[in-house]
Write a protein that binds this DNA or RNA. Structure first.
Lengths: 334, 334
DNA sequence: CTGAAAGCGCTTACAG
DNA sequence: CTGAAAGCGCTTACAG
């Protein structure tokens, strides 16, 4: 079988505990002892059994990441960064796809997934704050991307409202007056869609433009959603001179549909998105959008979660982090 | 503390072993006993401790997935599907990003990552077949996406050569004669780049067109790689009337650069890619590409790996699966 | 600084 | 069909 700590202890002529101490960087070990243990480890090719360690210590050194769909570019890019940051602190990331469904989110929050992980990075799309609070369990949870202003939670998010306002203000500054919004209901108030819509309305107010609900098109936050939504708007005959997609993929879907129908971008209709996924810069025309500080979100959320896990952060009220954003102007809305 | 099997056994008035038998669907248990155990489990809210189970059984019910970068659209889409398929058979997927670097691939193959997983889905980008064979360890490994025709390995891949040939033949059929290839060296023979280049050359041969190494531009398989490569080609003055990007992201980067420079697609230069990522359909113009059967790859690779893990497949020679492909013609190369 | 013992919560042979 | 015991390989108190 595999080499165990016992084998190492025997080879080094010390007790099991001493080997464990060496492996766990316990301070007070005689250098010569330490050396003998390290020699034995090298000689035998010993590797610690992580499962046994987990069983005894109750820690897995894995972080759970719950998101709707890893194939969505924003989540793929975020997951990749989170993994990189976590690995620098010696943690792995285990991903669970919820599909944005409440029952899957609940399972991820309460089921065996929690056992496998020391803490959770959770993007709640279907569950609300109270539901999460009631089922959060005892291990640390950091909410991601949602702006739940709730002292019960650690939240790392982006400036949804301010960034959406900046995008809208930019479109207005470019002379657009009929800005269609895709990806929300006209009365939406919760979650990212609600906050971004609020930013949009705020910019309109600032400019003294009356909000027109006919310009708000609900749709899924994916390419096909944006394409259908813009098609519906064109077919309905509602005039518009700009499209603000509440995320980049749907903005790109909308732009595709516009171009197919012979609407030129940005001459006839300007298009802007939200997220600055890698694709935005290389779209044709390239997409004006907002970079919501993904690196900062990754860095801060993983850092905060691990600090909680390791007890480095006092268990006070929830910490709220809002990453900075940058408006990135490109060809689709100069 | 948490409820254990012991608590359940006591509550149900049976031994530990009987509870274990019930949990593991052992056949010969009296229905009444089974019922009592299930009642006790429900009453106490018992959940099996997965770590303890792993330590004793030596199985984690996790599959490892090693790929270069989860933020690359092809890998993101693949990972998402692999997770979905695995979860249907009761397995989770733990992802490790290698960045395409040999040392990271080696670590993933030999390090603690292997302990955490019962088997590996491995995309070798830097390591060759012999290196992998020498370090594969004792647990099952299924190679993904690479066409290593080696009986030592289970391999699930795509028809790299045939698909690339089909793309090239399509461009030729459209009247293109100077087809630039991006993403390989002119003498490349290994891995996906080599095979796709081979397919390209084969199609040229069929059409009686002489291979021109000046049309082959090496570059990274990302958007910026494709953009730089096409820029280099344009600057060099080498004439070409089509671009075949060896994957979609680089083809899209190339297309972006062409359009920026006022080269119209497909009128002046046709563009085709490889992978059919979600973005290809919504690009402007939409991208002609080849769908390499990702669903089939996900289904077959996970199925094969789990069969190996569970001993359902005799340990004979490596199984080789080549998923079917579909040429998807769109606006960029009609 | 180091040791001997206990135990994390399961599954695995081995009995009966 | 079910039970009592052993043990997977570590870490954790507890001693000294």
């Amino acid at each position: 079988m595999a080499v165990t700590m016992n084998d190492v202890a025997r080879a080094a002529g010390v007790s099991l505990k001493t080997v464990s101490n060496v492996l766990n960087d316990y301070e007070f070990i005689r250098p010569s002892t330490k050396q003998r243990v390290h020699d034995a480890i090298a000689e035998l090719g010993y590797e610690a059994n992580l499962t046994a360690r987990s069983l005894r210590s109750g820690k897995t050194r894995m972080l759970g990441l719950v998101l709707s769909d890893l194939s969505a570019p924003y989540y793929a890019e975020l997951a990749s960064r989170l993994m990189t940051v976590a690995s620098r602190r010696g943690y792995r990331v285990l991903v669970e796809q919820s599909g944005g469904a409440a029952d899957n989110e609940l399972t991820a929050l309460q089921g065996p997934f929690r056992q496998l992980t020391d803490g959770l990075l959770f993007t709640p799309l279907a569950m609300d704050a109270d539901a999460v609070a009631a089922r959060r369990g005892s291990k640390p949870v950091v909410l991601l991307g949602e702006h739940i202003l709730d002292p019960r939670f650690d939240v790392v998010t982006m400036k949804n409202e301010e960034a959406a306002e900046a995008v809208t203000a930019h479109l207005l500054a470019g002379g657009r007056r009929r800005i269609a919004v895709m990806g929300a209901h006209a009365e939406e108030s919760a979650g990212s869609p609600g906050l971004r819509l609020k930013g949009y309305r705020k910019a309109l107010d600032e400019a003294g433009i009356v909000f027109d609900p006919a310009l708000v098109a609900p749709c899924g936050w994916r390419r096909d959603g944006g394409a259908s939504a813009v098609a519906g708007l064109l077919d309905s005959g509602v005039p518009f001179d700009a499209v603000f997609g509440l995320n980049d993929t749907l903005a790109l879907g909308a732009m595709h549909e516009l171009l197919i129908r012979g609407v030129s971008v940005p001459q006839d209709v300007a298009v802007a998105g939200f997220d600055d996924i890698a694709e935005a810069r290389f779209a044709s025309p390239s997409l004006t959008t907002v970079s919501p500080g993904m690196d900062e979100i990754a860095e801060r959320s993983v850092g905060l979660l691990i600090d909680r896990i390791e007890g480095l952060k006092p268990e006070d009220d929830g910490v709220h982090v809002e990453a900075g954003f940058v408006l990135t102007v490109r060809e689709s809305a100069p």
